[in-house]
Design a protein around this nucleic acid. Sequence first.
DNA 1: CTATCACCTGCAGTCGACTCCAAGTCAATT
DNA 2: AATTGACTTGGAGTCGACTGCAGGTGATAG
Lengths: 124, 124
Amino acid sequence: MTISEVAREYDITADTLRYYERIGLLSPVRRNSSGIRDYSEADCRTVSFVKCMRSAGIQIDALTQYMNLLREGDETRQARKRILTEQRDMIVQRLSEMQKTLDILNRKIDGYDKMLVYEQEIKG
Amino acid sequence: MTISEVAREYDITADTLRYYERIGLLSPVRRNSSGIRDYSEADCRTVSFVKCMRSAGIQIDALTQYMNLLREGDETRQARKRILTEQRDMIVQRLSEMQKTLDILNRKIDGYDKMLVYEQEIKG
DNA sequence: CTATCACCTGCAGTCGACTCCAAGTCAATT
DNA sequence: AATTGACTTGGAGTCGACTGCAGGTGATAG
């Protein structure tokens, strides 16, 4: 797959894909004879994973560390698991903060609804 | 309340509180005779609201717009409600993305657990 | 054979959200 | 009277994460 195909498929710009590769978040992608990137299935799975993690706000730095460990092989399993666990815990934490914010927003919106209905009533 | 008291209370730096005021997210705070900020109860409630919204990732820009409308008075209720509703919807969306990411992370972590247990077994 | 188009590189610029600093003021302590 | 410490301002710097060039290459279409 070319970079633009991957970009379209995963809704990431080609610039961002190149950027990810440059900073070592994605491994160097195989090139064809004229130097053009040719993404493998495995590359695509990594892109998809990275996109998913980034969409949840996981930092590039943490993902890069994880990817580096993956490349280093089996003896880094514990370390990798620790990174994932830390990130998972952060997500759980942020989910609960967001849930709290959501509740407050919903209450405020309800309040506006009531005010606006009342406004209509005294007008009509 | 002084800026440092508010900072301590809400776990925001004084720099950030001044920054918020400078960009118009917080209204200008009353000063004492020597020009030092004296936060009212209402100021603190606003700080607390802003902190809560920011912790859920709501953009400063949206919050500033909301605060500006609040200052403009009652005839902006509809507009304010619209902003809150938009932000609420974004949070709902991001909650579901994060939940998806969380599921994937949990599955991966489970996988690591099993691998690591198996490793122990063949070693022992 | 030249023009178009998608790709390439290196690097600078942008954006959101702070964060830090220098230099100054003021009230309270030593 | 001098020092300390918390505050003030304006403005510059940082950080994470892209994003946007300029200038070049290489395959394909007209």
